[in-house]
Design a protein around this nucleic acid. Structure first.
Lengths: 332, 332
DNA sequence: TATAATTGTGTAAACGCTTACATGTTTGGG
DNA sequence: CCCAAACATGTAAGCGTTTACACAATTATA
């Protein structure tokens, strides 16, 4: 492993100049820059992140914090990691952007960080609905930049990046109504998470706006057995001509029930989900849904954390990603 | 952030002594040790990994290398990350052990490392069936320790850790035969991967040993549509009274076909899989399978890489984890 | 043309650890 | 009681960067 000293020696300049060439900061003449670059090339030199980190008091490491629930230690639905893949895509966005920014990311466990925040990381991305106000307090005390991803805490002036499910829901439900569906049910998960709340409100507002009566049903999106739940609902409330599910995971289960029970989709009953999960386009019939830009969420989060890392005193913002309705075959 | 200097000053000793206390290497009297430890406690001091890394020429970072195929950029079966969760559990084992050893792990992409191996890592875990002999050559040249996980390359004298599917298969198939199944088919994936090969051979040997004719069917375990494949097989070869699937993922699909086609499991037909995938115990009927100790695989791999990292010139070994048959409801 | 601003480069002191070496102090066997 | 181990501690030189500061050369400004 060659060091900056060798480069400097061979190029006939000081290490400071080499450093300037590498970082692109400070003045260097085109001529010297070319020489240095050539030597670097020849030596196949890569600056040591460790040394650079020590000198700059940075580690170039960002910790991506997931709760155990999301990391799926509960092993709830046959997936083994990061739930139904939602956060996996977010993570991919984070990882790839970080790679471009020459930073490394590691997965950290929320519950462990609560005991003691790992001092080895420069910044943190706190992911998902389990992040609490107390966590924010904790990380504030830790003095290092962090942002909330796919979580929004009311009254907490903290950087966050979320997706705006309201808009997408409105266009989805509007579409359904305009295609002639009249009795549209909405089955949603716990409204504590801003995501379900958004969809819930988007659905209700749109239904009302068109003069229809909104009918919403709360369920445990992970644990509930839809083969039991749906007949129950249908018995009490009648059979709808369309269901707008709180997410694709639920929609998938609903679809499974329909297929078992002989409902034809979309002829007998329409169906739409939310998330544009990875399987949405491939199951049969393909699932109409509202696309959440998960990859972009991770990408933006990482970009933002970089800013926080380098520029001092940035005012906290909440970034809201728009969502968009995707019409597929599960509805007219 | 307090440094070793402050600790030394407050404890009235030199930094060397503090360093000795922390690392546990070299001589330190109980008395001074106690004092130093107390000061560390009071200051809430954590040694800087970066500085320590620089001094020791180590980064305490291990790179876990997955191919894009495994990272599932192909998005093949509705899972978004690490295939069907097999490697997810391996990764969990790696992560948790690494955490105990005070090392950090990051996911790296095989295809990128092929272009240029990231110099920022001290050691590498190369995961899965896509690792080639060329990769081994490449990493050898890189001079840093690495081991193959769930991959074995013939004639390649390199550290590797695999699972021994043969044993588990033998006890599984023996069980099936002893319970009275006679016409047992084996549907397997590409035999290029040692895993499928093991099971294939275990199945054939056992069948022959009991005097039955082995019938094996190759398929693309990921892409093939079992609703098409199975009727085809049944048409040509007759309907078996039991199927031993190459993995649980396939078994799950086979089960789905059975349920659609009115076969009752295990009354009409028995079924066993391989892997003990996360869903094996929860689907209905629960799946008899051969358990692969994935978590332990990751754990052991990490332990081993630590050894390679600290002790010089260890002779390469191949560690083989035993597998065990788990009887559930999908077979007698 | 004198002066100020802008460029270009080098020197050397950090950054927070580890560790070879030196030095001094205890032990304990003979 | 002597001397060699074994034990205990400190000194200081790295590890490979960054960067404040100093100084020189060039260019712009009046």
């Amino acid at each position: 492993m060659s060091s900056i000293n060798e480069v400097a020696k061979l190029a006939g300049v000081s290490t400071a100049t080499v450093s300037r060439v590498i970082s692109g900061k400070g003045y260097v003449s085109e001529k010297t820059k070319a020489i240095v670059l050539k030597v670097i090339e020849e030596l196949d030199y890569t600056p040591s992140k460790t040394a650079s980190g020590l000198a700059r008091r940075k580690n170039f490491k960002i910790g991506v914090v997931f709760s155990n629930r999301i990391l799926n230690y509960e092993k709830n639905d046959g997936h083994d990691f990061l739930g139904d893949g939602f956060y996996t895509t977010v993570f991919k966005g984070i990882k790839e952007k970080a790679s471009k920014l020459n930073m490394t990311v590691s997965i950290l466990v929320l519950e462990e960080q609560r005991k003691r925040i790992d001092s080895d990381y420069d910044a943190f991305l706190l992911i998902g609905g389990d992040i609490s106000v107390e966590d924010v307090t904790l990380f504030r005390e830790n003095q290092k930049p962090f942002i909330l991803v796919d979580q929004h805490l009311k009254g907490c002036s903290v950087d966050s990046i979320v997706s705006n499910g309201y808009d997408g829901t409105v266009s989805c439900v509007s579409h359904l109504i305009e295609k002639g569906y009249r009795k549209i049910f909405h089955i949603h998960g716990p409204l504590l998470h801003y995501g379900f709340k958004d969809r819930y409100e988007g659905y209700r507002d749109t239904m009302k706006q068109y003069g229809f009566f909104p009918r919403t049903f709360l369920c445990d999106d992970i644990k509930d057995d839809f083969d039991v739940l749906l007949p129950q609902i249908f018995k009490h409330e009648g059979v709808p001509d369309c269901i707008f599910a709180g997410n694709d995971s639920m929609a998938k289960k609903i679809l499974a029930y329909f297929s078992k029970s002989g409902f034809r989709v979309p002829e007998d009953i329409g169906l739409a989900g939310f998330d544009d999960a990875i399987f949405a386009s491939t199951i049969s019939p393909s699932l109409s849904t509202v696309k959440v830009y998960r990859y972009e969420m991770g990408d933006l989060a990482t970009e933002r954390i970089r800013q926080l890392l380098y520029d001092e005193n940035i005012h906290p913002v909440k970034i809201s990603l728009h969502t968009s309705f995707i019409k597929r075959d599960s509805c007219l």
